[in-house]
Design a protein around this nucleic acid. Sequence first.
DNA 1: CGGAATTCGATGGGTCCACCAACGAAATCG
DNA 2: CGATTTCGTTGGTGGACCCATCGAATTCCG
Lengths: 151, 151
Amino acid sequence: MAEQDNTRALHHIQSLPSWLTGRVAARGRDLVAHALAGEGLRLSQHAVLAAVAEHGPLAQAELVRRLEIDPKDVVGLLNELGDKGLVQRRPDPRDRRKNAVSATPEGLSTLQRCAALADQANRELLTPLSAAERELLITLLRRLHHADQAQ
Amino acid sequence: MAEQDNTRALHHIQSLPSWLTGRVAARGRDLVAHALAGEGLRLSQHAVLAAVAEHGPLAQAELVRRLEIDPKDVVGLLNELGDKGLVQRRPDPRDRRKNAVSATPEGLSTLQRCAALADQANRELLTPLSAAERELLITLLRRLHHADQAQ
DNA sequence: CGGAATTCGATGGGTCCACCAACGAAATCG
DNA sequence: CGATTTCGTTGGTGGACCCATCGAATTCCG
């Protein structure tokens, strides 16, 4: 510290992990988003569809908690996925406040193709790294993320 | 590939580098943003201030190219930084289309403090990693970013 | 030289994503 | 029961990015 040199201020910022991860994340986001556009899905729609497919029929509030997403946004996302025929909302007979959201067969097959597309995009993102380096990067990122999850 | 299992669709997505970097980047962004809030600056304002400080008096269009930022946003950012007395816009006598943007002494001292705050936030972000691992992560991210820069 | 093309600063409009505030309806708690 | 909580929904805010346009000033080129 106290080694701050304003003549390299921008260079300094752009060497920080927070900035580097932001840039790499932005590129990863764009790559995956572009790939998913082939299936007509946005990133958030893909995440919701995957959560619904993985965790059986679930209530929207459960979706909110699991994805740490805003309740408001869930409504729109499910509407869009519903319009595409990928998920369906039914009233939960056991608790009439809830909607039981589940994926349709079409939703599941779409999800299959999306997973392949997302994998492909991630391969492109990591092109500059060797297989061992990719594993290493994922491990480091995972540790940072898990430490965050646990506060 | 073709090992897609819809019963682990969400888990799969959340293991992808694109998702992990996104999460870590979001946390890094929040940490730095929160730290900079102590100086009353947002991330984009900090970046612009640093660029102006590092690269002498600049035209706004030059700022746009260097930071790959939207021309529209530059106007507002410079207005805000100008209102705070951290930068000043003067007409460039050599090209009257241009504004020569430079940092004020107050801007430079603010930048000093911001650099320290950003460093501190990044240290917090990387807390779970050893010094060697931090260097490794930065190296890997830098390679990904540079490969992107060169298309 | 003078007209055409380009650059610069600025503005308006639009998308996408994340976040906060509040509400009626329906369930659960005490 | 009544009070509280949960659920789904609607409202709006703000940041980051992109597209198009516009007048003023400069550069290019015939």
